[in-house]
Amino acid sequence: MPIRLPLLSPDPQAPFPPAESALREPDGLLAMGGDLSPSRLLNAYRHGIFPWFSEGEPILWWSPDPRMVFRTDAVHLSTRFRRDLRRSDWTVSADRDFAAVIAACATTPRPGQDGTWITPEMSAAYLALHRLGHAHCVEVCDAGGRLVGGIYGVAIGRMFFGESMFSGESGGSKVALAALARVLREAGCPLIDAQVENPHLRRLGGRRMPRDIFLAEAGRLAAAPEPAALWDFATFPASQLAGERLDPPRA
């Protein structure tokens, strides 16, 4: 039986269907159509909705249940990885080259994945959000300044909605996530949306959150004022992350 989905209005200010009305199979599929204008994207994120589609498909909008999230005080780095990180000459920065991070996320091969959902249309949309001050990235570079890892997403208020991360060298994405968590935690931002569960995210400390709880938490945090100069931090050595307690004992 064909799936029937609500078709979004051409008006980018038009409301989305309630996230609770999303399909159970495929999990979280909510609506189709519309565009990727900044106003529509920001409206989507504020309501726990994000776009995810492949080349040649219509724009599809999702709100899965449960949601994968990270608490910014609970990213897990293994003891072995921390030991190696203490000797690392990598550095961490933010918003130095958003275009390079999103391009690397789109083109870095991933096990079990054929192609990318970060289409040219998606890249252009998030670059526009970045220029408007809503999309941000964390870069990880080696001693020669080469990009070896990164993560990008959308910041609204005190909520960060993660979109994608990559590793150009082993561990690059782990460092990017841990650095993002540190920056957000120190600014009073407790939550990172990771959208859809997978084993890699679980190993890094990602947790399932029921959609109703996520929508309430994300809505509350997105409505809060964004911390001043959050993305203006000075470049720092990735080795600093090795000694931080980012993964307290779980209940």
Results as ranks from 00 to 15, higher is better:
R24C: 13
V69C: 05
L127F: 00
V92F: 02
G144M: 07
V138K: 03
A228L: 14
A99Y: 07
A99H: 15
L230T: 00
A251G: 10
P6E: 11
A242C: 09
R46M: 10
P17N: 08
V140A: 05
V154Y: 00
S63N: 10
H200I: 13
E163D: 13
F160G: 01
L191E: 04
C189N: 09
A155P: 05
H47T: 06
L201Y: 05
V196T: 12
P111K: 14
P249C: 02
A19I: 05
T107W: 03
H76K: 12
I102Y: 00
P15W: 12
V75G: 05
L215W: 01
E20I: 04
E25N: 06
V175W: 04
I49M: 08
P120G: 03
M122Q: 12
L147I: 11
I49G: 04
S54G: 11
G243E: 13
Q240A: 14
W52H: 10
A187L: 03
E121K: 13
L30H: 10
H76V: 13
I118A: 04
D89Q: 13
D35R: 11
R207N: 01
L184A: 12
A143D: 11
A74Y: 00
E55I: 07
E226G: 03
I118V: 12
S173M: 05
M1K: 11
H76F: 11
Y152N: 08
V92N: 03
A14W: 07
H134F: 15
R110F: 12
L60T: 06
Q240R: 15
M165T: 13
Q13R: 14
F16M: 01
T79S: 12
E163A: 03
R185I: 06
A106F: 06
Y152H: 07
H76T: 09
D27P: 11
F98W: 04
A128Q: 15
G144F: 10
G150D: 03
H134P: 08
W231R: 11
C137T: 04
Y45Q: 10
C105L: 08
D114Q: 15
A223S: 15
E20L: 07
H134T: 06
R146F: 00
